[in-house]
């Protein structure tokens, strides 16, 4: 691995001070499962690596039926995947977390790391956005909250400034008759980077869809909401025709590229197929 200096700040203030001091030449290390790979492959060449794992309080995960879910930036994918609260109320997120790499990777990889890496194909991002996640961003003497859907600006690029650190993620409590689903498409059943990822989070009232969010991964420079498809479904009874129409609309909203993992045309087609499947599965979960 390329040579670098290493720091273990004990507080957030210390961490952001280091980031400011080494403006642009430092990287934050949390789980390390992306950062260390990128250093080894010389995609990133930081002179300074700042390990934030010694900062207290950031590994907590709390759930409250009213306030919802809140977890710090050191919470791992494996903790999310196996948390009974997450599995019950945010099953799309739990499913997505379980599809990140292997158990070995998930024991290190953090959800916030997945967020900050901002890969268009990151599994946890679509369900987080679908469930309305908000992140807390810390900088010198300041803290701000950003809706996750507004957090990404491009592949690997976010609204985060060089001296800012994401400290926590919150998800609102779910209302009754809700469900969330994540379906990943890859060539294998595990150890995949998504060709397409589809998250659907919805609330039903009888057969009528009161709330729906459809979020697509790996088909645009960032995860995207299929807002037209959502609008089509919202307020209506979700019958087969409507589901197919919404899925078709989601497909039209996607903007995939062609690469080694799949062609743009195939990815679009999968958005349609998987969006319909995800809506149906969510429906079944509620019923």
């Amino acid at each position: 691995m390329r040579r670098f200096d290493y720091f273990e700040p004990q507080t957030l203030d210390e961490a952001v001070a280091l980031l400011s001091r080494y403006n642009g030449t430092a990287n934050v290390l949390a789980g390390g499962t992306d950062l260390l790979v990128e250093i080894k492959e010389q995609i990133r060449k930081p002179d300074h690596v700042i390990n934030i794992k010694k900062i207290p309080g950031m590994n907590r995960l709390t759930f409250d039926p009213v306030a919802g879910l809140n977890f710090g930036s050191l919470v791992t994918a494996r903790e999310i995947e196996t948390s009974p609260d997450v599995r019950r109320d945010y099953s799309g997120l739990a499913q997505a977390a379980s599809e990140v790499g292997s158990i070995q990777v998930r024991n290190r990889a953090t959800i916030v790391g997945n967020i900050c890496r901002a890969s268009p194909s990151a599994d946890t991002l679509p369900p987080l956005i679908a469930d309305g996640a908000i992140v807390t961003v810390f900088s010198e003497g300041d803290e701000r909250r950003v809706a996750l859907e507004d957090f990404f600006v491009g592949p690997g690029r976010t609204v985060l400034r060089p001296n800012e650190i994401v400290t926590a993620v919150e998800l609102p409590a779910v209302t009754p008759h809700s469900a969330s689903i994540y379906i990943k498409h890859g060539r294998r059943k595990a150890m995949e980077l998504a060709t397409v990822g589809v998250a659907v989070s919805l609330t039903l009232e009888g057969a009528v869809c009161r709330r729906i969010r459809i979020v697509l991964g790996a088909v645009a420079p960032t995860p995207i909401r299929a807002k037209k498809a959502e609008a089509l479904a919202q307020g209506h009874a979700l019958d087969e025709d409507l589901i197919e129409a919404a899925a078709q609309t989601a497909m039209d909203e996607s903007r995939p590229i062609s690469n080694i993992r799949g062609s743009a045309a195939y990815r679009r087609e999968m958005v349609r197929v998987l969006t319909a499947r995800a809506i149906r599965q969510a429906q079944e979960c509620v019923q």
Binding site: G32, L36, V37, V49, Q104, V105, N107, R108
Partner: peptide, 22 residues
């Protein structure tokens, strides 16, 4: 780079890829 698992060890009781731990 964490893709093959040949370097798996238990760190504080949990399996991890030792290539992805400093």
């Amino acid at each position: 780079v964490g893709d093959c698992g040949a370097c798996t060890v238990l760190l504080n009781g949990r399996p991890v890829n030792s290539c992805l731990v400093l």
